[in-house]
């Protein structure tokens, strides 16, 4: 075991993980950041996405011991960097848009969807619907049929996900 230092949601933390400790286990079991969900545990569903140095990664497929010096952002810390939310809302602009456009039903896939969308909008601020659909290939939702997820991300990109008048497509 080796002591490593990383930041999680902008807070520095020292860890001493066994070699086979996965990032998702560190987040959920040790740090109780349970917003990141473990879905398939086989790198297919995208529910466990977090940002590592700004890139979306499946936290069930990365060992914590590899992350010395890394900056991790989970859904709990996303609003702080996705700061177009309303006033003192604890939600960022993408989360707000998901709320307004009813971009979730059971909510299990949602944190992964929002993390994925945040990486897309950071690199492609005004994606087309086709680009969003292509981007979300690795995020599986079994409730919504994706329509409102896409609508929410479109709204977040154009800024219409903030303020009044979010239209639900349900």
């Amino acid at each position: 075991m080796t002591v490593i230092r990383l930041t999680i949601n902008q807070k520095p933390i020292d860890l001493d993980p066994p070699g086979n400790r996965l990032l998702i286990e560190t987040l959920r079991d040790e740090l109780h950041l349970t917003g990141t969900h473990s879905g398939c545990d086989t790198s297919q569903c995208g529910a466990c996405l977090v940002l590592i140095d700004g890139q979306s990664v499946k936290s069930c497929s990365v060992f914590t011991g590899e992350l010395d010096g890394a900056a991790i952002t989970t859904i709990e810390g996303l609003a702080a960097i996705d700061n177009f939310g309303e006033g003192d809302s604890p939600l960022g602009r993408i989360q707000t848009a998901f709320q307004q456009y009813h971009g979730l039903q059971c909510g299990f896939c949602t944190s992964g969807m929002v993390i994925s969308a945040s990486e897309l909008l950071a690199t492609t601020p005004h994606p087309t619907e086709a680009e969003i659909r292509h981007w979300l290939e690795g995020n599986i939702c079994r409730c919504t049929g994706y329509q409102n997820i896409i609508a929410a991300i479109m709204a977040a990109a154009t800024g219409s996900g903030t303020g009044e008048g979010g239209e639900s497509h349900v």
Binding site: S43, G46, L49, I52, Q55, S56, V57, K58, S61, V62, S116, E119, L120, W135, E137, G138, N139
Partner: peptide
């Protein structure tokens, strides 16, 4: 290849 998170890793 794969999806964005797979390509990042």
């Amino acid at each position: 290849i794969g999806d964005p998170a797979v390509r990042n890793r």
